[in-house]
Design a binder for these strands. Sequence first.
DNA 1: CCTATGACTGGTC
DNA 2: TGACCAGCCATAG
Length: 115
Amino acid sequence: MPRRRERKREAVEPASIHERIHAVARLVPRGRVSTYGQIARIVGCTPRMVGYAMASLPGDSDVPWQRVINSQGRVSPRGAGDGGLVQRKILEREGIRFDARGRVDLEQVGWEGPE
DNA sequence: CCTATGACTGGTC
DNA sequence: TGACCAGCCATAG
C-alpha cells in the first residue's frame, strides 16, 4: 500500500474538507492541544489545509480553534491583529502551560487522538 | 473560469 | 536557533 493517505474524496464524504477539519478539531478535549499536522493526518489532508480551514472560522464558531497549534508547540502567528495572544490566553485559562519561549510541551498536553 | 489569498511542515544551510 | 524554500489545496470574489 504505497499510498499512506487517500487524497481522493470518496463519494460519501461530508460536504467540505473544512467541515471535517472542524469536526476533528471539536474532538480535542479541554486542557489538551493538537497540531495542524495531527489533524491533517486524521482528516487526510495537508497541514496547510487545516491552517486555512481554521483561518476561515468565524469568531463565534463552536470549534475550539484555540487548541490547534503548530508542530513546534507554538501558537501560529496570524497575519493580522493579536489573535495569537488571545489564543494563548484562552489556552492558559484552560490549564495549558507555556514556557519562557512561548511553547507548550506537546509530549505532555498534546492530544493523543480520537483513539 | 481565473486569480488571489491563507492559522503549516519538513528539509537544508 | 533562525532563515529560506518548495510542496499543497480549498474558498471567495
